[in-house]
């Protein structure tokens, strides 16, 4: 050290480290809770392709661009893609997972309010990426 005492800097570093540990621990804990998919969740297969979304319900019915779900029921999305990478996003419910060819990524949620929500693609996928939207319709 250049001749003078440096303790304020080390106190500052210690404070920063404490804050970071707090943020990290909190993040770890929340992520652990939200990743725990309930066993009874109904599986919806989600497929992204240039430039629309296809949904397949557990009973085999398919929807394109629209997804009808029931309020209060847990759902699990099995997300994949047909051509290039996309990202399945329902921002209002903090659902975000990449849709990748040859992989199945999962996310789950319980829609708790009836209404319409935007489904969008959040990974660049070419020409009409900006318009690759769908609607989630949550029914009573």
């Amino acid at each position: 050290m250049s001749g003078h005492s440096n303790w304020p800097e080390w106190i500052y570093v210690a404070v920063v480290i404490c804050l970071l540990v707090y943020v990290g621990a909190e993040a770890w804990n929340v992520e652990r809770l939200v990743e725990h998919t309930p066993a009874e969740a109904e599986v919806i297969k989600v497929t992204g392709q240039q430039w629309f979304w296809t949904f397949e319900h557990a009973d085999g019915t398919k929807e394109i661009g629209e997804l009808h779900l029931k309020k209060g029921k847990p759902y699990k999305f099995d997300i994949t893609a047909k051509d290039v990478n996309h990202a399945f996003n329902i921002h209002d419910y903090v659902i975000l997972q990449d849709a990748i060819v040859g992989r199945i990524n999962t996310a789950w949620f319980v829609p708790d309010k009836a209404g319409e929500y935007t489904i969008q693609c959040r990974e660049y996928c070419g020409l009409l990426h900006y318009n690759m939207r769908g609607i989630l319709i949550v029914e009573e």
Partner: peptide, 13 residues
């Protein structure tokens, strides 16, 4: 961003 649950709000936005 680095706090992982929050990144699912911010990522690619």
């Amino acid at each position: 961003n680095a706090a992982m649950p929050f990144d699912f709000i911010t990522h690619d936005s």
